[in-house]
Design a protein around this nucleic acid. Structure first.
Lengths: 129, 129
DNA sequence: TCGAACCTTGACATAAGTGTCAATGTCAAG
DNA sequence: CTTGACATTGACACTTATGTCAAGGTTCGA
């Protein structure tokens, strides 16, 4: 599929798709005209990238963990997997865990604050029941 | 305390502290000289801000949820809390939950990938036992 | 009192991610 | 064949969060 369709189906812009390609997050083939051609797999990948970017990750980090995220990852590649690669992935996994912990802690604080607000509202204004 | 000490104790730079102040995340008093003066409370706040920025949140979002994050939040302010404020906080809480879900899903995928790598390593090279 | 170390504001620079526009090429439908 | 929709590259601009530097004011120890 061409870049316009890919972008539309991924809910993004062609500009962003080109950017992800420039960053090495996705690849494309080129036809006789110079147009980019993308596969369905790439579409899924772009959706994943969007999701992770929205969650606050950088393209660098996404690039690091993308190999782990292929959906039907049947023929998992073991060749060329150096101990350094494994260590890097473990670091990224831990960084993700840290982020999750921080966000969870703060999300809970927001929720608790909201609960107090609502307890107060119900206590001082016992209407609407 | 002055900006240098605050920055040092928060593990950041004076530049960033001024930036957070310009963004309304923290406040300071000014002495007879024009120097900023910060309290211990502000120090805790800056640490929290750093943590949230590192976790991928924007200063805008942090500004929205900061009122919920005061540590000993005893005299919780109910005055001027409009339904819009509550709705906004609920939205931010939900956005945080979405982020957490996405990060968790992807963290788990990385962890699973690592586990497969290690199963393979142990299977094909049963040394180091 | 002098100099080092700190503070002030303001400016300019950078990286990432994105928008937008221009000049041009391709293709399909009328 | 022309027109409109879509593709190409390249450039410029913007925002965020940050670094850095300059020109000046303040404080403090020797």
């Amino acid at each position: 599929m061409r870049i316009g369709e890919l972008a539309a189906r991924a809910g993004t812009s062609a500009r962003q798709v080109r950017y992800y390609e420039a960053k090495g997050l996705i690849t494309s083939t080129r036809g006789s005209n110079n147009y980019r051609d993308y596969t369905e797999t790439t579409l899924a990948r772009v959706r994943q990238i969007r999701e992770l970017l929205n969650a606050g990750l950088s393209t660098q980090l996404i690039l690091a963990i993308l190999p782990c995220l292929e959906s039907p990852r049947d023929p998992i590649v073991f060749e060329g997997v150096t101990p350094e690669t494994v260590a890097a992935l473990q670091r990224e996994r831990d960084r993700l865990s840290d982020r999750i912990d921080i966000l969870t802690r703060n999300r809970d604080a927001v929720a608790e604050y909201l609960a107090e607000l609502q307890r107060h509202a119900r206590g001082s204004e016992p209407a609407d029941s």
